[in-house]
Amino acid sequence: MPHPLLNKTAPSLTLPNASGEQFTLEPGKSGVPTALFFYPAAGTYGCTKEACEFRDAVKVFKRTKCEVVGVSQDAVAKQKKFVDEQGLNYPVLSDASGEARKAYSVGKGLMGLTEARVTFFIDSKGIVRDVYDSTLNFSAHSKFVSKWLEKVEKETPSM
């Protein structure tokens, strides 16, 4: 069953970042694509691997001008420790209330045993073009975004 946000406008969010400051994500406002990924828990093996893959891919994503944002339900202090320990170079947001997960219809993974690991590729107009949902294949999330960036780059006429 397709995700309910597929081909629809992505919701805007305002959540605290790892420094505790309010961060507002308004997909499409800046005119660049957004990779928004939800992960289960900061500091765990899979989430660290996924977050670091996005960290390392940000240089490539900047070439194509893509914003990367990570979200989990961890408290700000835990997010701050995670960001500092891993040298994450993109906003990591605390969704302690679960409002972002609800807005993006992100449920549970592994038969309800954990929070789901879901990545949204949102185009430069703020439309959710595709959703990748895989709790165990944490390395595939940044590759999913790379493939979409290549596809969108081909769709955009060069000047």
Rank of each mutant, 00 (worst) to 15 (best):
G107C: 12
I122Q: 06
H141F: 02
V83E: 01
R63P: 00
A75H: 06
K62G: 08
A18W: 00
M159G: 08
S30K: 15
P40D: 12
I122S: 06
K59E: 13
R117I: 10
A35M: 02
K80F: 05
A140F: 10
V106A: 02
L36Y: 05
K8N: 11
S30R: 15
A35Q: 04
F120N: 05
F144D: 11
G87R: 09
N7P: 00
P16K: 02
G87E: 13
K154W: 01
G28C: 09
S105C: 14
K147C: 08
P157E: 13
G112L: 05
L25D: 02
A10D: 06
S146A: 14
F54D: 00
P91M: 12
E99D: 14
Q79E: 10
V76R: 01
N89C: 11
G46K: 07
G112K: 07
K65Q: 14
G20Q: 11
F37Q: 01
K125Y: 06
H3N: 10
A77D: 10
V106K: 01
V68G: 00
Y90K: 07
A35T: 04
E53H: 15
V152R: 06
F144S: 10
I122H: 07
S94G: 09
T9N: 13
L110W: 11
A51N: 12
E99L: 09
A116T: 12
K151D: 03
R63C: 00
C66Y: 04
V118H: 00
N89Y: 04
V118S: 03
A35E: 00
L110A: 12
D84M: 04
S158R: 13
N7V: 05
K147Q: 14
N7E: 13
P11D: 13
L93Q: 03
Y104C: 04
P11Q: 14
E155T: 02
P27D: 03
E53M: 12
D123I: 01
K78D: 13
A103P: 01
L25C: 05
T44F: 11
V106S: 06
S94Q: 08
G98I: 03
E155H: 02
L15C: 09
T119D: 12
Y132F: 15
P2E: 12
F54N: 01
T119M: 11
A75P: 09
F54M: 04
P33Y: 08
